[in-house]
Amino acid sequence: MFRAAQIHNIVFDLDGTLYTSEKIAREITVAAENLVAQTRGLTSAQGRNLLRSAKKRLAENLEEEPTLTRTCLELGIDVADLHRAFQQHVHPERYLENDPILFALLDSLRDQCDLYIYTNNNLPLTRKILALLGVEELFSRLYTIEFCGTPKPDANALQKVIADIGGTPDSFLFVGDRQAVDLKAPRALGSSVLLVRDTSDLLQIHKILGIIP
């Protein structure tokens, strides 16, 4: 249940939540596949197959879809090496542009709440994406893999984010596109959560907070 009067902090996931781009998602996956291949002395195709097999095996063990980062960790890939590959081979500037509608949606929330990003992405790429969308200035702080240390979902990392922002869990609304990754852990702590499938779904926040009827 949402407790609009208690919500003072809104924490957004980034990829798939504030924007959607199959081409960026593909570049991220290819960068990971190639890194797996390089570290194992495999061809790109073999690296792709190994990553897919590891993801399937991990999904069976966890009984939920694992993140790409978690799967790479399972294969012994260092998080820092993975994100160096992302910085070298992922080019959001090819696909993203200023989004004035997103800016207006987010800006209208700031009178009532502070806005934050909590993402498995790295800080340079997160800043680049937000700058391309034209919304970087709207967020009080960005919580990326450098701050958290471990990727979502992780209860300790989540509590570290909440403690750094300040406030009780019920003063938070977490917004994301993946139930198991972005929302399950915050809900367990007592935070409000909102699942979105498209940026237009962000308007639901305004209804939750009573900004629009």
Rank of each mutant, 00 (worst) to 15 (best):
G166N: 01
T168A: 01
L194H: 11
V193I: 14
K160F: 00
I162C: 11
V161W: 07
V193P: 05
A180C: 00
G166S: 05
V161M: 10
A185S: 09
G167R: 07
T199R: 06
D182I: 13
I162E: 01
Q179H: 13
D164P: 13
D164T: 12
D177L: 11
F172M: 13
L194V: 13
A180R: 00
D198R: 14
A180D: 15
R178N: 10
Q179Y: 15
Q159T: 03
S191W: 08
L194Y: 05
A185W: 04
K184A: 12
I165F: 14
G166V: 04
S171D: 04
V196C: 10
D164V: 12
Q159V: 05
P169L: 05
Q159E: 12
G190S: 10
K160C: 03
S192D: 14
G176T: 15
R178H: 03
S191H: 09
K184R: 11
L183F: 00
S171M: 02
I165S: 12
S171N: 11
S192L: 08
D182Q: 11
D182M: 15
A163D: 10
G167S: 09
S171L: 02
D182K: 15
Q159N: 06
V196N: 12
V161R: 11
I162K: 02
V175Y: 00
D177R: 10
G176N: 15
V181G: 01
R178Q: 01
S171H: 09
S192M: 07
L189C: 03
F172H: 14
D170Q: 02
I162F: 05
A188N: 09
S191E: 13
Q179S: 08
Q159M: 09
R178S: 03
L194M: 06
D182A: 15
G176F: 14
K160V: 07
T199I: 02
V181W: 01
D182G: 11
G190M: 08
V175G: 04
T199A: 06
V196S: 06
L173F: 05
T168L: 02
L173H: 05
S171Q: 11
G176K: 15
P186N: 10
L183V: 03
F172C: 14
L194E: 12
V161I: 13
L189W: 04
G166Q: 03
G167A: 12
D170E: 07
S191L: 13
V181M: 02
G167L: 00
D164C: 08
L173W: 03
P186F: 11
A185P: 00
D177S: 09
T168Y: 04
D164F: 06
L195I: 06
D177W: 04
S192G: 09
S192F: 10
K160P: 05
V196D: 13
